[in-house]
Amino acid sequence: MTETETSVRDDRAGARPAEAGWAGYLSERPLLVLGAVLALLVVVTVAIEPGYLSVRGVRNTLLLAAPVGILAAAQTVLMLTRGIDISVAMVATLAGYVVGSQAGTGLAYSIVVGLLVGALIGAVNGVGVGVFRVHPLIMTLAMSAILLGLLSQWAPTIFRGVTAVPPFLRTVGGGSFAGHLIPYNALVWAAVAVVVILGLRRSGLGRMIYAVGDNPTAARLAGVREWQVLLVVYAISGLLAAVAGVLIAGQVGSVDLRLAEEFLLPSVAAAVIGGTSLFGGVGSYSGTIFGALILGVLNTMLTFLNATQAMKQVVFGVIVLGLAWAYAAAQRRTG
């Protein structure tokens, strides 16, 4: 696939010489373009609802974008290895239930157990994808179906009465500090962002992730054990999904079977908008952060516009397609 990709791209590059000037400048700096899109959306939103510019408006965008951003971190890391995780929403929901059920035995303990369960399920996905070579889309899709089935059975039995979320988590998930300026969950997001960005750039695992996604054969020849990388990456995805699930549960104040469902497609979209390619090896988490913020502002804007569900879906689809296309075009120009 990669060979084909490169050669076709080369053909195109030959037909259309790389452009100099502002287009070339911008295409090398996608974050600038994303920042401009974000700024434009904010301006439009303020024009619709001047109240948005208040401290609270910014705080809300952060508060709502944080869980999407953390789930999108999982998708970004996976997409770098040509993977995807459809099960993040159900893993997040399960983590919410686990934390709720263990809260009686101590908060820290319950959170650790919740996150471990998430990582464990992610690792199972990783075994399927890395060892048994199941297509990531199918593996995580099936995992999602299995988790929904299990949770539907467990919710009224072993998880009965655990739907209330401990006050501490409600504060972390929905509260804010510094005069209602910064939400606590944005701190969690920031921590995740630092770890993911530095991890991808500096650590050996990060380099292996890019290597596996860019050219699996070359990576294998260079001694990278692909299945080990995939196992770890999917476990990380499960862990991040669990973190997001705990935050979402805190924000909503309770858990239910469809807790994180609404976050699944935005998490993929945020990574795509941020310029991570599903062909693997290309992309960064900083782009994804912008993607999550863009989606957050867009959502708020559409709420202010009283947009119908129909309108929301169309706008969402067009934005994803438009930015992905722009990004692909820019990449072709520079590539």
Partner: peptide, 23 residues
């Protein structure tokens, strides 16, 4: 033509088609 991955384009069309269906 765009060489965007199939999953991305059709994820977008999933939203667009159902949005138009609701209209």
């Amino acid at each position: 033509v765009s060489r965007i991955p199939d999953i991305v384009v059709t994820l977008a069309t999933l939203f667009i088609f159902t949005g138009v269906a609701l209209m």
